[in-house]
Design a protein around this nucleic acid. Sequence first.
DNA 1: GTCCTGTCATACCCAGTGGGTATCACCGAG
DNA 2: CTCGGTGATACCCACTGGGTATGACAGGAC
Lengths: 287, 287
Amino acid sequence: MDTLETRELRYFVAVAEELHFGRAAERLGMAQPPLSRSIQQLERRLGVRLLTRNRRGVSLTGAGEMLLNEGRAALDATTAAARRTRRAGGADSPGGPRNRLVLAVKAGASHELLHKLLDAYAAEPDAADVEVLPSGTCEQEGMLRDGRADVALMHAPFNSLAGFDSEELMTEGQIAVLPAGHPLAARRTLSLADVSDIPDLPLARWSRHGAYPPGPGPEIHDQTQLAQLIALGRTVAVFPDSARAWLWTEHTAVPLTDAPPVVTHIAWPAHSRSLALAGLVRTATRL
Amino acid sequence: MDTLETRELRYFVAVAEELHFGRAAERLGMAQPPLSRSIQQLERRLGVRLLTRNRRGVSLTGAGEMLLNEGRAALDATTAAARRTRRAGGADSPGGPRNRLVLAVKAGASHELLHKLLDAYAAEPDAADVEVLPSGTCEQEGMLRDGRADVALMHAPFNSLAGFDSEELMTEGQIAVLPAGHPLAARRTLSLADVSDIPDLPLARWSRHGAYPPGPGPEIHDQTQLAQLIALGRTVAVFPDSARAWLWTEHTAVPLTDAPPVVTHIAWPAHSRSLALAGLVRTATRL
DNA sequence: GTCCTGTCATACCCAGTGGGTATCACCGAG
DNA sequence: CTCGGTGATACCCACTGGGTATGACAGGAC
């Protein structure tokens, strides 16, 4: 009577994202009429109009925006439940596979902390198997939310820790990475203003969801590309201190005086009760 | 194929909580056989054993524990989606009802901050209607999670802020509330050790989920009861400073030197995107 | 051992409904 | 006006979620 079914949420989110019943139905692998009817039933049961069907397409009402947002969260929680349950399965038989723990880390982030963590944890008695899952730019949050990962290394202020439990692991300053020959590379320190506005070295633009923000800088989608472009003297980048580990000889690192410090946290879903996770966190905070 | 339905989660959580198919079925308002079958289907689809059916009853496997925990979170998120969407409905027509915002507060907590907040927010242009929802001991978390509330005033370290976004509003010390005539009431300050072990004034035991922790103190379930018992010289209590507002003449408040400070936060679900909520939070942080 | 009891699983049936196809009603663009 | 494209309606069917009756099995009483 008043309990929303997962299917209904999936349908509504599809329609709300596409703002088009036909495309949404196609995405869902079904025909358009039953989808229309389903959404109507949903609106009736909630007693709320979710969409305004005007000539030429559909738009969201306030309640629709709310359901899109809350529904995504609920769907994530549901798929997370399925994923984590599957992952926990089979770990019951005493001689069987051990618990597994999926740790999401930013691809290309400092390996030093990660290595120390994994080594220290593996030495613990009853340690679970840790699978390291490299994630794209700031994708750790989504991975924790929908259960692809159980725990993540996050970097404030780039990742938002909102909605997770976390412990602080490390704080570091930031550096500008410049082509070795560039005049600014001779400076002992720089400010953000210095590097954000170098005429011949525009800041690179990272790919976000397949699109690029506007600007003069080159378009990149991975760190190697960026390193290459810096080495070629085409751009400059700002990184946490620990990025020094992968610099090339063609690169020069200069500390930034006014860049916000980068704080690495270990974060996990607040409701988690996994013993293996607790062990990993304990190990991490002791490092 | 791999998407868990809300119904399945509800069924499984019921069985996992009751550890008994018959009682779970009764609670769900259905017969036992379809429930059994449903759980079997769920196990097949997840490819994981969730329950061990041994002689005389049922127990949870590791995967079952995981699904109980994650499933509860998912169910909460789903009912929250429904509740919040219903609440947001009807606020679209320009002359219609305004947005409503449900604020959960600890029943009996300081009204001063709350009053200031409500007054200041009501003065804002485009302020939503704020419905204040008094909640039992530490129940604000559940209310935020399942959508009965949109935002809450929480008091660290009693409430856990894990899983929510929050802003700090106020910090206060704690006081011991003693019967006015008691010898210790003459002291200028006390320590926690002083009040936790007064032979003639055992600390009261709050009702939690209908049960009481063991101990010598009287059993209580609301603040008035407690005030009464203190006034009668039967017990002592520890409260935040702001509790001074409701003390009786038969009560004496003595500051505690070593009690952890109580920090009042305003907290909300991390994924929330409500404008009304943002306004309330903005008002609160400006107080 | 034989009951009896309490538990979950199986067998079978039925109705409700989710999904499909065909079609309509509507609106804006030419 | 017609046409293309949208969402809604009408109608049908198969599937499956739920019900009842019953089975299988383990413990406890004796």
